[in-house]
Design a protein around this nucleic acid. Structure first.
Lengths: 171, 171
DNA sequence: TTCCCTATTTATAATTC
DNA sequence: TGAATTATAAATAGGGA
């Protein structure tokens, strides 16, 4: 069961090529799905399989057509003569929504900035939807900060000749 | 350097998501090239990278357009469906943007939360008169709060039959 | 052929610099 | 901010059933 390092070249042997492809299609689509979902990246794949008439489309036919259409709408790609009214309207609506999204982002940022500390320390409304790993991140960050402050104050205290009351980091 | 097994879910933390994406794009395109060359499979990818206006096209713009055009020319694929899906496409896009909005809000909340904490503890506007025990109080309060959340989530997770990822309280 | 298996390679999450 | 590093997870070539 020794494996050669793969050289990027056409696999001549048809049996091996097919076998390789069957495994690789799975892996490849898996990577596509990971990028798509984990990183929230829109993507479409059209893949012509040997001995198959219809192409395989990722993530599915409808979404693929959707993404592909969007792609074709790009000015560099498409001749603007075919621009239809319907498409223009669609674009405008999307643009508007994206604009709103940007505004809300900003608004939200300001709001949250003023409210969060209060809520963290007093409120009941810790987001129940908060994911566990976020909470872990949060714990970690807070802890690190507290350690830093602890060190600073300890140093200060030492310089002042004071020996007591250095806060303990939470660890 | 322990790695969690990757769960197929949107990475909420924006920094991590970007980092993940940067690595995954490379790996993903590598897989694409391998399938393409090793197995002699024609394929095209259009990928909309976040914060980038233009999509990335595999294997290149021209070949991608060719492949997609070939795909689109399939009579049963597009001709019949394209018109009736126009409305659906718009709805889907709106839905997606709204979904992103929700995610971004959450993301933003967590970001600001940590930033706020950082500024409180390290910033210039920490009252220099703040006593050490105040800081200890703060640590205590935060810690208690996190414990509470921890317990809630642990209970929840248990009810769901999930066993992993319960956040650790800082103590 | 089509599953399995597993030794290796490859990809990548977390961390360090 | 990135660019390495490292340790772990995932993919897979080759082989056997």
């Amino acid at each position: 069961m020794t494996r050669k390092k793969v050289k990027l070249a056409f696999i001549e042997n048809i049996t091996k090529r097919k076998a390789s492809y069957n495994k690789r299609q799975k892996g490849f689509l898996n990577k596509a799905r990971e990028v798509n979902i984990l990183c929230d990246v829109e993507l479409a794949i059209v893949l012509y399989r040997p001995y198959h008439k219809e192409p395989m489309v990722f993530p599915n036919l409808e979404a693929g057509v959707n993404t592909f259409t969007k792609f074709k709408e790009l000015p560099e790609v498409v001749q603007s003569k075919n621009m239809e009214t319907q498409e223009t309207i669609t674009k405008q609506r999307i643009k508007k929504i994206e604009e709103q999204l940007r505004k809300i982002r900003k608004e939200n940022k300001i709001m949250e900035l003023t409210n969060q500390m209060y809520e963290l320390l007093n409120g009941d409304d810790i987001p129940t939807s908060m994911h566990l790993y976020d909470l872990n991140d949060l714990s970690y960050v807070i802890n690190q900060r507290l350690k830093q402050v602890h060190d600073v104050i300890k140093t200060k205290a030492h310089e002042d000749g004071s020996t007591s009351d250095a806060p303990q980091p939470i660890t």
